[in-house]
Computed example of a mutant assay.
Amino acid sequence: MKRKKGLKLLLLSGAAALLYCAILQYKIYQYSHKPVPKDADYIIVLGARVKTDGPSLSLQSRIDAAAAYLLANQNTKAIVSGGQGTDEPVSEAEAMKQGLLTAGIDETRIIMESRSRNTYENITFTKKLIPAHSEPVLLVTNDFHLYRAVKMAEKQGLNVKGLPAPTPLITIPKSYVREYLALTKYLLTGKI
């Protein structure tokens, strides 16, 4: 009898976990498939890891998405946001700036924020660099990260839309598991 109850409890817990992950996945999908406004005043490119040989795959995807948008929207300025971790050769902001310059974006259109260490700080520090009444403002990050990033920005009073960068295939399993955990922590505590 105890064994049956234990099995039933295990199955119910597993079903609840799957349902929870499905809901999170739906929100992630929903936020990464919204229309992207043209002619934004600013885009905020969120940082990701920089390796010794250059941007990580995820960061390069963000740089590419930002560059494509900036080339198509000549009046938009970019704020590249990300500090330098102990294992990073340069700040994430510097790596993004170099990537955008290489893609042909004029340096006068790039503003650097190189103190932040996480998504919350990216938004906190970047918000101070955006003039009041600038709209629209777009957050550029990988599609798996967009829902949480937009929610964090809204909580800090920043009205943003998302510009999703594709998640590199090789990083999908790790990225999504980490994001489910980060989202759970954020939803429970309001912190990253």
Rank of each mutant, 00 (worst) to 15 (best):
R62K: 11
R62Q: 07
R62V: 08
R62D: 07
I63Q: 02
I63N: 03
I63A: 02
I63M: 04
I63G: 00
D64C: 05
D64E: 14
D64Q: 15
D64K: 14
D64L: 08
A65P: 07
A66L: 04
A66S: 12
A66N: 02
A67D: 07
A67H: 10
A67V: 10
A67E: 09
A68T: 01
A68L: 08
A68N: 02
A68R: 04
A68I: 01
A68V: 00
Y69I: 01
Y69P: 01
Y69K: 00
L70R: 12
L70K: 06
L71C: 08
L71I: 10
L71A: 15
L71E: 15
A72W: 08
A72R: 14
A72L: 05
A72D: 12
A72K: 15
A72S: 12
N73W: 14
N73Y: 13
N75R: 14
N75M: 09
N75Y: 10
N75P: 06
T76R: 11
T76I: 14
T76S: 10
K77Q: 15
K77D: 10
K77V: 08
A78F: 13
A78H: 11
A78L: 13
A78I: 11
I79A: 06
I79P: 04
I79R: 06
I79T: 08
I79W: 06
V80S: 09
V80Y: 13
S81N: 05
S81E: 12
S81T: 07
S81F: 11
G82S: 11
G82L: 12
G82A: 12
G83R: 00
G83D: 06
G83F: 03
G83M: 00
Q84C: 06
Q84Y: 07
Q84M: 15
G85E: 08
G85A: 08
G85N: 03
G85L: 09
G85T: 08
G85Y: 13
T86S: 11
T86K: 15
E88P: 03
E88V: 05
V90D: 09
V90H: 09
V90F: 12
V90E: 15
S91C: 01
S91E: 03
S91T: 03
E92D: 07
E92A: 04
E92T: 05
E92S: 09
E92R: 10
A93V: 04
A93S: 10
E94G: 01
E94A: 05
A95I: 00
A95F: 06
A95K: 01
A95W: 02
M96I: 01
M96H: 02
M96L: 00
K97Y: 04
K97T: 02
K97H: 00
G99V: 03
G99K: 10
G99E: 08
G99T: 04
L100Q: 12
L100G: 06
L100R: 12
L100A: 11
L101I: 14
L101Y: 13
T102H: 14
T102N: 13
T102V: 14
T102R: 15
T102M: 10
A103W: 06
A103K: 15
A103D: 04
G104V: 01
I105V: 15
I105Q: 09
I105S: 10
D106L: 11
D106P: 02
E107N: 06
E107I: 02
E107T: 05
